[in-house]
Design a protein around this nucleic acid. Structure first.
Lengths: 346, 346
DNA sequence: CTGAAAGCGCTAACAT
DNA sequence: ATGTTAGCGCTTTCAG
């Protein structure tokens, strides 16, 4: 009680009106015990029943809400899981998030979220911020722009999970979760062939590893079926605005297409509408096959190669929570959900 | 330097291998200055050029990453914006999130996210956790289960924004953002009538204020057009699984329907598929009108009453960041996007 | 079983 | 311009 007698702190923030929150000290004073005791009852230490009751009552009385921030500084890190995603618009990410959120909730942690909108710059900035927030772990669906940073984070004790690609020689604490994209590509090839489609046009979302692998798998499958994919049958659409031009490019090649494959879930709508805008009927005029299941696919009869995104999110979050000693590279198997858009199996 | 000489801290956590992160103190030592100086150069205080350079170099050298947690305990709260949502599956929430995220990013804050899956219990728990995290502000799309808590939070200096309903007598720091649901309902009525639809069936997602208001608006509009809505023409589907039964109930009423109105975006898919599953063609056999625009609506020709969800998210986040002195109750206007699903305007 | 006191990493007076 | 020294709210020895 000798400290700061009568010294009213000079209102240390003009407009910031940071209302003074009740602290463990306030509760201690009200209950007539020391802060140590309050801390003990709050965390389930050995305290006499009667004292504990007094403390709980004081806490309730004063509307005490513990400060998780301070706890975390003590623990060295927070309990929050960081998620950096490049575009939450994609159906894939929504389900991924659901999986992550579920695991987080089960471990009463929260999810801290940031969207990069495909900007490498924002990606780096967000990862940095997450690190500054001392997240318990980081899940990121990114390119390589942050590889050195995630390696450092992993080394510093923040487990990281890269979604969508595998890692060469991952250190401890750096995991990955991805689809078996080669298998997905081969699956596509197989289905198209079995539906009698022979001349395929492919729309890829870019040159990220996943897209490349899917193309490769498609190539393999088609080649094995005696229908190798011509170089110019694969066109890239970096964003939805480019899809229309991509479809034009495919059509301008001379050969008439009997199927269009879309390699990225976040391009499905655009590709589909480019097709219908040209008066092409699916599957009569052209077959349509895409990746990632979505809620309207049944209604539209669109056949997809589904990615178990919810499971992937769950496992990614579990990797964070469990933090296994060995780096894990998890691969998930795609699943064909055949509907009408590629025509009948023959 | 007199403290803890030779006292190696007894490895205070067995398996928790919390690698010791480099602190401001480490940097100070390496640069041969005091922690205060390091803090200054990091935050842009007045420091001699040469010293600053040494500090930056030391920081880079040691791979120093500031601890935002500690900063926050000082500031009294973190810079993170908390978002508690009841179901991120809905297209509405996705866009809301985008808006929030954008504003957050602009103010280099992060978004902390939690999903309640419509459980009041989880809602309370999540709001509590957000409060413990000392979020800068809270955006919540909830029912009333947390009203006393948000009021307390607002009083304690954490601005809260309730999405989806207005508040009676809000205190300082408690804002709301919502659609003009009455207008939305009237808009629906008006459009249906102008398309020659006379016998309307309505599917509501429950008795949340928004749904009730939309129903009320619809009633008003229909009554004014001389076509009052019978009591039993409104049925409730608490979740997607109940939609099928709800449609049955509507059909079993005797009167044949010429339009179905869906009052919640998160039921659109289910209602639509219930309709098509019954062989009903839209709009020939039955008109279909729903709420919230979504990416596949153009392809499906579904007419919607669009909610400016992205804008609403943006404004909600801005309310948090700006924290105006007066509580704000923001109302947004719905917009009709007419496509084919209600038939031709006559 | 409980209290005093030493920090956690950082900022902000207050000195120099 | 820079260092010293209190804390922020909480946990955790270490003594009673």
């Amino acid at each position: 009680m000798s400290a700061a007698v009568g010294v009213s702190p000079p209102d240390r923030r003009g407009k910031e009106r940071t209302v003074k929150r009740t602290t463990i000290g306030d509760v201690a004073k009200a209950a007539g015990v020391s802060v140590a005791t309050v801390s003990r009852v709050l965390n389930g230490g050995a305290v006499k029943e009667a004292t504990a009751t007094r403390v709980w009552e004081a806490a309730a009385q004063l509307d005490y809400t513990p400060n998780a921030l301070t706890k975390s500084i003590f623990a060295g890190r927070s309990t929050t899981i960081g998620v950096v995603i490049d575009d939450l618009t994609s159906p894939f990410y929504l389900d991924l998030m659901r999986g992550i959120d579920e695991v987080a909730a089960k471990h009463d942690s929260l999810v801290m979220f940031a969207n990069t909108f495909h900007s490498a710059e924002r990606e780096v900035a967000h990862v940095q911020t997450m690190d500054e927030q001392r997240v318990r772990g980081l899940i990121i669906t990114s390119g390589e722009s942050t590889d050195t940073r995630t390696r450092r984070m992993a080394a510093a004790g923040t487990p990281c999970v890269i979604v969508g690609r595998s890692l060469a020689d991952p250190p401890r604490g750096l995991h990955s979760v991805r689809l078996d994209n080669i298998a997905a590509g081969r699956m596509m090839a197989h289905h198209l062939i079995s539906c009698g489609r022979r001349s395929i046009g492919v729309i890829s979302a870019g040159n990220r590893p996943g897209q490349l692998e899917r193309t490769e798998g498609l190539r393999q499958g088609l080649t094995e079926a005696g229908r190798p994919l011509p170089e110019d049958a694969v066109v890239v659409a970096i964003d939805n605005a480019e899809v229309d031009g991509a479809v034009d490019a495919l059509q301008d090649r001379g050969t008439s297409l009997d199927a269009i494959v879309c390699l990225a879930g976040r391009r499905t709508v655009a590709v589909h509408s480019a097709l219908t805008a040209r008066g092409l009927r699916i599957p009569d005029d052209v077959g349509f096959l895409t990746v990632d299941d979505f809620s309207w696919a049944p209604a539209l009869g669109i056949t997809v190669i589904a990615e178990p995104s919810y499971q992937m999110g769950k496992r990614a979050a579990e990797l964070i929570v469990d933090d296994p000693d060995q780096p894990e590279q998890l691969t998930f198997e795609p699943q064909l959900i055949a509907r009408a858009s590629c025509g009948e199996n023959i």
